[in-house]
């Protein structure tokens, strides 16, 4: 009757972990450990804080952008009018631009959420702010009266002209009477508004006193080149492992290393749906590690690579 006994031994071995421990014990003081840990970690925390501090790089405002890079600001404002900016073509949750969402086969979570934060870039970022001015430019009326085709024609023509102009400076744009309509005046008025700091408040509060929501300003900043260039200089962009980086040398979210890693390698690096792929992959990996006790192979690695022989070497020595 060898076989049943063997089975019994194995069952007993597993059962050992299941039952309360009835072997030798050592004295252990939970509260003492807690106190020692509080002191040790307290010294470490306060010491690191005193020595290394924490970074606080000042935020960018629409005002600082307009003053530091006026040509970029005007080009971006023109793109918002033309509907050719990144935000204008983003799709949900901001707008309904066709074929803009990240999909995986039939899976289109972005469209599923719907347009929850509707943004009309021309109106929300340029026209409405201008109309809050005490003396809005008279050309604003021309834009409001014009047809969609006319508006697109003007702003696209001006966009192209800005791209060709020396230093992309609006002052160097080729004269073409009528082709740009009111767009040069509107974008220049917005630039003045931004330079004076008025646009920051208008975009943030949207005519109200209170504000919690910085979506409009953040997206407007991101549509330009200035904001991204600053981030690139600080190694913060997605293709620079930026997700885990903090400004300067302070450690950032190093626990996001795997999330950042996928964006650096193919097929993710050049995939148009990279965000969706990486999010789904990380969800899958997180669930896998969480359910490790149920996954054959993953749960057996600790038996195959016996690190536990080191951890419990004292126990094994005195078996």
């Amino acid at each position: 009757m060898n076989n049943p006994r063997l089975r019994a031994t194995r069952a007993d071995k597993d059962g050992l972990a299941r039952r309360p421990w009835r072997g030798t014990v050592r004295e252990y003081d939970l509260f003492k450990e807690l106190t020692v840990a509080l002191v040790v970690m307290g010294i470490l925390t306060l010491g690191l804080s005193a020595i290394f501090g924490s970074p606080d790089e000042a935020s960018v405002t629409l005002k600082s952008w307009a003053n530091a890079a006026p040509a970029d600001f005007v080009a971006t404002a023109t793109a918002e009018l033309a509907g050719s900016s990144e935000t204008a073509g983003y799709g949900p949750p901001y707008n309904n631009t066709p074929d803009a969402t990240q999909t995986l086969g039939p899976l289109d979570l972005q469209s599923l959420s719907g347009v929850q934060l509707p943004i009309d870039t021309a109106n929300d970022l340029v026209i409405d702010p201008l109309s809050t001015l005490n003396a809005p430019p008279p050309e604003l009326a021309d834009w409001v009266k014009a047809s969609d085709a006319q508006r697109t024609g003007w702003s696209t023509a001006y966009s192209d002209a800005l791209a060709k102009a020396t230093d992309n400076d609006p002052a160097n744009v080729a004269a073409d009477a009528g082709a740009y309509g009111p767009v040069p005046v509107l974008t220049d008025s917005l630039l003045t508004m931004a330079k004076q700091g008025a646009l920051d408040g208008v975009l943030a509060a949207k005519g109200d006193f209170y504000n919690f929501d910085y979506t409009l300003g953040t997206l407007f900043l991101g549509d330009g080149a200035y904001f991204g260039d600053l981030a690139t200089a600080q190694h913060l962009t997605g293709d620079q492992w930026g997700m885990m980086n903090e400004t300067g040398n302070t450690p950032g979210q190093s626990w996001l290393w795997l999330f950042s890693f996928w964006y650096q390698v193919e097929p993710f690096a050049s995939a148009p749906n990279a965000d969706l792929l990486v999010v789904l992959l990380m969800l899958l990996l997180s669930v896998a590690l969480t359910l490790a006790p149920f996954i054959p192979g993953l749960r057996d690695i600790p038996r195959w690579i016996p690190v536990h022989r080191l951890i419990w070497r004292d126990y094994y020595r005195r078996r």
Binding site: H235, W241, M244, P251, G252, S254, V265
Partner: peptide, 28 residues
């Protein structure tokens, strides 16, 4: 200490091809 303590100092980055890591994160 002064490298870390200065908020204005640009970060130090170490890289091998696609791998790039900020010194602070590497130390952690």
């Amino acid at each position: 200490v002064s490298i870390f303590a200065s908020l204005d100092s640009p970060g130090i980055y170490l890289g091998w091809g696609a791998f790039q890591i900020q010194l602070g994160n590497l130390i952690v």
